[in-house]
Amino acid sequence: MSNVPVSAFLALALILFCIGLYGALSKRNTVIVLISIELMLNAVNINLVTFSKYGPAPSINGQIFALFAIAIAAAEAAIGLAILIALYNNRKTVNIDEMDQLKH
């Protein structure tokens, strides 16, 4: 077997996704939660590009999907940071467990 098996790429994407999931659910800092979500989106992009080359029907479409995912992820990061700054101006905190105005 000369080249890398397809399951190795998928396993790498799975490990990165698990790291991002754990970080997004366990960290208290909102910036770190946002960047963990970016890590999860990146893992999904690795899967798309892998199936674009090694899938049952290789074509360019997987790379196009990854391109759209990157564009939407950039938009999501900008909006998330804007919401974070607006919340910080009102509450003076970045901890995610203190942002609970909707409960009261």
């Binding site: 910036v31 960047i35 990061a77 940071l81 970045v94």
Partner: peptide, 18 residues
């Protein structure tokens, strides 16, 4: 996008908050 733009925008978010 990622190593340039998103990292810089996250650093802005960190620097603008305490």
């Amino acid at each position: 996008i990622y190593s340039g733009a998103i990292t810089i925008i996250m650093l802005f978010g960190i620097m603008l908050t305490k």
